[in-house]
C-alpha cells in the first residue's frame, strides 16, 4: 500500500497581480485564558501582548489575536509536531483547547501600493495605516466571505480564508484588481 502523506491538494486560487497564495502551514487554534496564552506564546518564543487585534511574530511563527480567549498560532508546515509538543508541554494541567486547523483554511498574501484599496473593494474596515497599523489582525469580511486579515507590512496583508471560500475570495480580488492595475 502506498504512503500518500506527501500528496496534498489545496483549494483553487485565482491568479491576479496583487495576490499570492502562501504555502501550506501549521495552524493551531488555541483557546483559553490569559495565563494559557502567555505560556503558549512563551513556549513558541513569541512576545505575549494582551492587546486586542494584535499579532506577535518571530522566526516564522506567529500568534494572531482573534478573540479574548482565542489565538490562531501559525508556523511552517514542517514544524507541526515540534510546535504541538511544545504547546502540550507548556499547557499541561491548564484548562485550554488546542485544535489542529492546518487544513481548515489557507493563506493569501495581498501586497503592493494598491493592496489597501483592493481589499476595500470587499472589506469594510478602514485600512489606513493609522487605523489599521502593521501587526493588526482581526476576523472580518471580504464581500460575502469571512476572512482573517493581518497587516504584516505597510503594503502587505496576510489573509486566512476557509478553504471552500478561497476560490471565491481570490476571484473577487482578481476581478477588483482589474480596476487597480491597468
Amino acid at each position: 500500500m502506498r504512503d500518500l502523506s506527501a500528496v496534498r491538494q489545496g483549494p483553487y486560487i485565482a491568479a491576479s497581480p496583487l495576490v499570492r497564495p502562501l504555502p501550506p502551514a501549521t495552524r493551531l487554534l488555541l483557546r483559553g485564558n490569559s495565563e494559557v496564552m502567555a505560556s503558549a506564546l512563551g513556549a513558541l518564543g513569541l512576545e505575549f501582548v494582551e492587546t486586542a487585534c494584535r499579532a506577535a511574530s518571530a522566526s516564522g511563527r506567529s500568534a494572531l489575536w482573534l478573540g479574548p480567549d482565542e489565538r490562531l498560532l501559525l508556523a511552517p508546515q514542517g514544524q507541526y509536531s515540534e510546535v504541538f509538543e511544545l504547546l502540550c508541554a507548556a499547557l499541561a494541567g491548564r484548562a485550554h483547547s488546542l485544535v489542529d486547523v492546518s487544513h481548515r483554511q489557507c493563506a493569501l498574501e495581498v501586497s503592493g501600493p494598491q493592496a489597501g484599496p483592493l481589499l476595500n473593494c470587499g472589506c469594510p474596515l478602514d485600512l489606513d495605516p493609522a487605523a489599521f497599523p502593521v501587526g493588526m489582525c482581526t476576523r472580518t469580511v471580504l464581500a460575502k466571505a469571512e476572512i482573517v486579515l493581518w497587516r504584516t507590512a505597510e503594503r502587505s496583508f496576510h489573509l486566512e480564508v476557509w478553504r471552500s471560500f478561497a476560490p471565491y475570495v481570490s476571484k473577487v480580488l482578481a476581478l477588483a484588481a482589474r480596476e487597480l492595475t491597468p
Partner: peptide, 17 residues
C-alpha cells in the same frame, strides 16, 4: 449600516455583527 462599538475590538461596521 450601523457602526457598533465592540467592547473588545472597538468600532466596527454592522456587516461583522
Amino acid at each position: 449600516m450601523l457602526l457598533i462599538n465592540c467592547p473588545y475590538c472597538g468600532e466596527r461596521p454592522e456587516l461583522e455583527f
